[in-house]
Nucleic acid binder design. Structure first.
Lengths: 201, 201
DNA sequence: TTGAGATTTTGACTTATGTCAATTCATTCG
DNA sequence: CGAATGAATTGACATAAGTCAAAATCTCAA
């Protein structure tokens, strides 16, 4: 039994289970994970990260939905939607340790388990098996980015939309179209016309 | 001294140095790396990977330049250029263990150090410090993909080209324009017109 | 050196998507 | 409930980029 509800905050249970599936964790690692985890709550439309700051935390989404975006000539360009069990941070800023240009915003009430960069490094150093978890998590993210890249390379706006519908149908219900439009690299009117062509699909 | 040229093929030296910088490697790990590494040589225009096959190898480029692409309605869509010290495989196929749709082709004479999927898993299992190397390598790849994504999201073809020139100027000399065009999501004529506007930049 | 094939450029025309403005629809809050 | 704000749709028009064809240029092997 790697998890003791008397010792650790109950909210972390899904995260611990998730990690433990990738690599069985020692009691010491579980303790340190719980020690370092900072649980943060955000309301719908709260900003989790702003540009100009170094992203010091990588966070695991315990509950909720977020969107990351940046400004291009005053316009918001959505780069990602992430929900339960996903990891969020500004990749660029977190790994380069420099201020980034990304916003991250809660699209629904969201609960995060946040880990400071220094604590992450400490965990990697103190618990070799945590490198397995880090590696697999990063591989999964990689996998996800490849899919995104693949879709963005479709030149037809319509193809990109259909791909999105097929792979993330639940997001259609949870995310305003204006955000989906910039995520798919088209403007709202174009998206609206594509959708109008034939039902919602 | 972690590396003994009497025991290990000389070609692997750059790879070993590269890995050792991420995490000091035990003698056992160095030996296993060398034992599992398969050195492969490809001539310009040779195919390294074809669709329909499971990508069983992740490879480290010892020397050369490759391009990966897939076919979309008969047309080649270039997804990556990778050169010395980079890692190549079909992310999708390698991690999912399913046949992929990617081609990888040598654009110059290329030498690879190839590691079989099963051997990689064995290395992760037998040498915990290899997970550090795996994690960092994957993080770097992630970083690179984020940059690619960022650029693809620029809607103006001209912006994408300028970004490419700024970040990969050496590729302009080494890669035919027709490949760069599909990589940047535009057709050859459009690229040519952009370049014609004002010098090569 | 020459010439065949590949690569790149240029031109004329088409088309998909962007832009801006007006309108409809939905949601929230007093 | 009904006004007000924001979200989504629709229309008219502008423009960036695609398509197809032809010409120019480059490259490499005989």
């Amino acid at each position: 039994m790697f998890y003791d509800p008397k010792l650790h905050p109950e909210e972390l249970l899904p995260l611990l289970g998730y990690c433990n599936k990738m690599a069985p964790m020692s009691e010491g690692l579980v303790n340190d994970l719980c020690k370092y985890a900072v649980i943060k709550l955000f309301k719908k439309d709260d900003l989790i990260l702003k540009p100009g700051m170094v992203a010091n935390y990588a966070s695991w989404i315990l509950k909720g939905l977020v969107r990351s975006y940046y400004l291009k000539e005053g316009e918001e360009i959505t780069t990602k939607f992430l929900w339960d069990s996903a990891t969020i941070t500004s990749i660029y800023s977190f790994y380069s340790r420099k201020p980034g240009n990304e916003y991250i915003m809660a699209l629904e009430d969201t609960m995060l388990a946040c880990f400071h960069y220094d604590h992450m490094q400490q965990l990697y150093k103190d618990h070799e098996e945590f490198n397995i978890i880090g590696r697999i998590t990063t591989e999964r993210y990689l996998f996800f980015l490849e899919i995104e890249l693949y879709n963005l390379r479709k030149q037809k706006a319509e193809d990109r939309y259909h791909f999105f519908v097929k792979h993330f149908p639940h997001l259609l219900q949870r995310v305003p179209l204006k955000y989906i439009a910039t995520y798919l690299g088209m403007n709202l009117e174009t998206l609206s016309r594509i959708r109008g062509k034939r039902g919602t699909h």
